[in-house]
Design a protein around this nucleic acid. Structure first.
Length: 291
DNA sequence: CCCCAGGTAGGCT
DNA sequence: AGCCTACATGGG
């Protein structure tokens, strides 16, 4: 059955073991997976990616006029990629910004995902003062060590899989100084999920998330954006700090001020703006230079 | 043998 | 509050 929610929206068809995506303008696996929001993806070859979220996997295959998302759990994958989100509308608004209009053409079909909460918290704690390649490496070692085996891959560990794991264990998978933060998660996360946080404002929920050790402003904003899809946040890391001075403000400001300035500029589209800029800065700009 | 990476906590003033 | 620095580890 088709979705007829809007004229310009992504057209897709749900089947028992796959989702068929029609057209390539609103869904681009490279742009979605390589924009830094998600770590458990693998490029198989030209045109094929595998992604694993929680305990669900998907094989993304490029075909003539779109993509086929092979999966045992299509509804979970539909949710993961926010397939009903209307990006035509979002981009029509964003393109009015001179800086964004420059980078949008490089990231057509980028979508913000909706990632699993526990996985997102762990992943972004690991991301602190780290590089993407090594973040992926540590996460894969974590999944292989304690994640449930599903078919031919390992699920991301659940909170219960973390029971009893100590700092020594997390150091053994290469987490380094972040090991103690991960070891503290079992108790603190179990406390957190008892609370009703969905109705908190973004500011309140950020403050709550920052009570986790290893979660500061930037990591909290990533959790807000990717796990909660709160779009009124703009995570600022070393890359976004560079983008800020190159495009938005030449005067030196305190690093803590940059998110505030950019959220004022982009409002409820901040999260989208940040991801388009991040993709351009970390992937597209580099590829342009090598051409 | 340097430097850097999707930063943060803790200690200092 | 705001500033400073240590922090584990793999890759360039």
């Amino acid at each position: 059955m088709y979705n007829f929610l809007g004229e310009n929206m992504l057209k897709y068809e749900m089947q028992e073991d796959k989702i068929i995506i029609y057209g390539k303008s609103e869904f681009n696996p490279k742009h979605i997976l390589e924009c830094g929001q998600f770590f458990r993806y693998f490029k198989i070859d030209e045109g094929r990616y595998v992604a694993i979220s929680g305990d669900v996997s998907v094989l993304i295959e490029e075909v003539e006029d779109g993509f086929i998302l092979h999966t045992k759990n299509p509804s979970a994958i539909k949710r993961l990629f926010n397939l009903d989100e209307d990006y035509a509308k979002i981009k029509a608004e964003l393109v009015k910004d001179a800086v964004i209009s420059k980078v949008l053409p490089y990231a057509e079909g980028l979508r913000i995902m909706k990632t699993e909460l526990f996985e997102t918290i762990c992943s972004f704690i690991i991301s602190a003062n780290n590089n993407i390649k090594r973040i992926k490496l540590i996460i894969e070692r974590l999944c292989k060590a304690v994640g449930r085996r599903v078919d031919d891959y390992y699920a991301f560990p659940t909170i219960e899989d973390f029971r009893g794991l100590d700092e020594v264990f997390f150091r053994s998978i290469g987490a380094g100084f972040r090991a103690k933060y991960l070891a503290e998660l079992y108790e603190n996360y179990n406390e957190f999920i008892k609370e009703d946080v969905e109705n908190l404002t973004t500011e309140e929920l950020r403050a709550r998330l920052m009570q986790f050790k290893g979660v500061g402003r930037k990591v909290a904003d990533c959790i807000l954006l990717f796990a909660y899809n709160r779009m009124d946040v703009f995570p600022v890391d070393v890359w976004m700090e560079r983008v800020y001075y190159e495009n938005f403000g030449s005067e030196r400001v305190k690093r803590d001020k940059i998110p505030e300035i950019l959220v004022n500029r982009f409002g409820n589209l901040s999260g989208y703006a940040q991801q388009f800029l991040f993709y351009y800065k970390t992937v597209a700009e580099k590829e342009n230079k090598t051409k």
